[in-house]
Amino acid sequence: MGEKDGAAAKGAAGTGGAAAATAAGTGDALRRGVALVLLGATCWGVNGTISQALMSGYGVDPIWLTTVKQLGSFWLFLLGARVVTPGRLTEVAHDRRALLRILGCSITTIILLQVSYMQAILWTNSGTATVLQSLNLLMVLAYVCVRLRRAPKRREVAGIALAFVGVYLLATGGNPTTLELPAQGLAWGLLTALGQSLLSIVPVRLVERWGNLVVNGLSFLFAGVVLAVFCRPWERVPSLDAAGCALLAASVLVGTFGAYVFYMQGLKAVGSLKATMLGTAEPVVAALTSALLLHTSFSPTDLAGFALIIAMVFVTA
Rank of each mutant, 00 (worst) to 15 (best):
A120H: 07
A275T: 13
A20N: 05
E282P: 06
Y143M: 01
G80R: 09
A8G: 01
T172Q: 05
G305F: 02
I201C: 02
G16F: 11
L267P: 01
G279I: 07
C231R: 14
I50V: 10
T49S: 15
T109Y: 09
G166Q: 05
T172M: 01
P233H: 08
A281P: 10
L170G: 03
A98T: 09
G127W: 11
V92G: 00
T22R: 15
T109K: 06
L247K: 10
I111P: 03
P203H: 08
R97D: 15
A41D: 12
K268E: 14
A142T: 14
L191Y: 11
W44Y: 15
G25Q: 11
G211C: 08
F298A: 00
E180L: 04
L113Q: 12
G72L: 07
R82L: 14
R209Q: 13
G305K: 05
R101Q: 11
A158V: 13
D5M: 06
P238T: 11
Q133H: 14
L198T: 12
A12M: 12
R147L: 02
S126W: 13
I107Q: 02
G305W: 07
T85G: 04
D302H: 04
A249K: 10
R32D: 01
R32L: 14
G266Q: 10
C145Q: 06
F222D: 03
G127L: 06
V83S: 00
T172K: 04
V204F: 07
